[in-house]
Nucleic acid binder design. Structure first.
Lengths: 340, 340
DNA sequence: GTGAAAGCGCTAACAG
DNA sequence: CTGTTAGCGCTTTCAC
């Protein structure tokens, strides 16, 4: 089919190239009759403007990139990322942007990818999942001055646009709920310590206990990597401290922890209660179903894109911030329905 | 930083634009000393060629698209897709291609996306997940003559490059295994009927039974949509027919079915055995662990990209085909370890 | 409202 | 081996 150019269409419609360009770009200054004629030719020929030429001339590609850094790529096992990606892709469709996906596995990948994500790289803007410590990619990107939205609170927050949930409060609420229901020895399975999410959720856990005058016991704090398996192992570590409730920093870890508890002969939530974080669809599958902190993951993706497009179209200063709400979804695993 | 052009670098290095271009593109015809000098300037300035200009001039973008059509987008809940995407992204990194991701949710999305994925759309080639009936997008794409690799056997197979596993054989082997272990009333939970995967796996199920002279009972055949929940419901439908083994067309459905069986008070694999398909990481989590047909999902992605690049660089004729091997992974749920 | 003309930054013959 | 010269297909002033 087509290898048609603007010039060809212009000739066929009996107008100049500029006029066709105006029609294509919905520019107002075109006589209605002319517009119709041109549109018809475009229809009939199945013409589509050449994206590269357009990008070169207009300095706009209508493409944004999503960068999922090193530590994250393996997390692709966590439904969180597909869901986030889906929200982002959905928003891109809606706003007529194309989404480029960069999974950064290694330091080497990072080098390779850099030219493609920095200015001149065919991208109008960038979404970067972060919150990792020592993410030097982020610093380079910030310096390169490309519109950039960080997903998850970054360590350095000056002059950076980002979107996040209030992890501290969310975690604090979840743990407070456990206290309210009557649990005494509440443990937590935190995420890897080099990320803001993990730190914030752990801080929320601590805050809830401190607010009620409870002691913080190191033996009641374990660490996982957000995976099911890590939740399972973390729970085994917690066991000797005899927790009667556990707040896990992700649903997957909560589910792994429940598995460990069940294997150890504990009954949920009578012997031990659990609360997770995310509210993935699979939270409703185990029995008992999982009480968890709902994050609006999909909305998160949509928002991120909206902010990015704002940055692209209206300049990157001042930095935009967006903190989204969470909600404690009470199901069976926290014992609220039984103990009360 | 940089808004530098080839021209600038040329001036700084005291050579012509073409020479710089040659250096950048690793063209051999450059004197070593000159190359070094140019390279140094590039280093110092942090110059990166403008991708749009390059694409326009060379008619190559080094970008490929991955299209996940309508029916599939919701399936993003199935770890299969993230895993596949990961393989593809990995291969793209390796071969220095950028990956554009298109999640087609609605018919409307399809229209919007079309210009961006057809010729002129900034993409050198396309990977399309398919095997759906009535995927008219595919036909349009084939006609548009863009290098295209279909992931999953498409309905129309003439002149199309695709990559798939031998689903018929794989399913047949799985079911034969159940027969060998001694199960008598083997049911299946098939996928939605409008896809080649579902059809092929169901055919394999039937073939295995027929080969052993067994009857096909409609009441032992249920249908799901590959999700956990659909496996759960399909199992409930199967229950009245009293199957003593079930082959499910996906791990997720197998897990859902096992949940239903357990709730009905059946013990696995003593009362009823299960085999899944995919071998997702979560197949090892339930107890008993899930026997399943392993697909090399990640490798699948890598292969697909390799074929696509071959198509891009060496022309799209003749169509390439690639059928990958599967492997039956025997764990606990099929009862092989107990019954024998 | 419309056309002519000048690039956007790069690649790729073609001479030399 | 290197520089000169055309474009790639489109957007965007600037006149008319």
């Amino acid at each position: 089919m087509s290898e048609l150019t603007l010039e060809d269409i212009a000739k066929l419609a009996g107008v100049s190239r500029s006029t066709v360009s105006r029609v294509v770009n919905q520019h107002p200054n075109v006589r209605e009759s002319v517009r119709e004629r041109v549109l018809e030719v475009i229809q009939n020929t199945g013409y589509h403007p050449n994206a590269a030429a357009r990008t070169l001339a207009s300095q706009r590609s209508s493409m944004v990139g999503l960068v999922l850094p090193r530590s994250v790529s393996s997390f692709f096992a966590d439904p969180y990322f597909p869901r986030l990606t889906q929200g982002i892709a959905q928003a891109c469709n809606q706003f007529d942007y194309t989404l480029a996906l960069f999974l950064v596995g290694t330091k080497e990948d990072e080098e390779k990818i850099f030219p493609r994500v920095s200015r001149n790289g065919l991208l109008d803007g960038l979404l970067v999942q972060s919150g990792q410590l020592g993410e030097q990619l982020i610093d380079r990107l910030i310096n390169s001055n490309i519109p950039l939205v960080i997903i998850g609170r970054p360590f350095q927050t000056e002059d950076v646009s980002y979107i996040d949930v209030d992890n501290v409060n969310a975690a604090c609420n979840a743990v407070s709920h456990l206290i309210r229901v009557g649990y005494k020895r509440i443990g937590t399975i935190a995420g890897v310590a080099n990320s803001t999410v993990s730190l914030d959720r752990k801080e929320g856990y601590i805050r809830a206990l401190v607010e009620r005058g409870r002691d913080i016991e190191e033996a009641l704090i374990a660490e996982g990597d957000f995976s099911e398996a890590s939740g399972y192992y973390a729970m085994q570590q917690l066991m000797p401290a005899k927790p009667d409730a556990v707040f896990a920093a992700s649903d997957l870890m909560a589910i792994g922890a429940m598995r460990a508890a069940r294997e150890a002969g504990l009954s949920i939530p009578d012997d031990i209660a659990f609360i997770g974080f995310d509210d993935l669809p699979l939270a409703t599958i185990p029995s008992p179903t999982l009480t968890t902190v709902r994050q609006p993951i999909y909305q998160f993706g949509i928002q991120a894109v909206e902010i990015l497009i704002d940055l692209i179209e209206n300049g990157i200063k001042p930095a935009r911030r967006c903190i989204m709400d969470t909600e404690l979804i009470i199901r069976e695993s926290c014992g609220a329905f039984r103990r009360k």
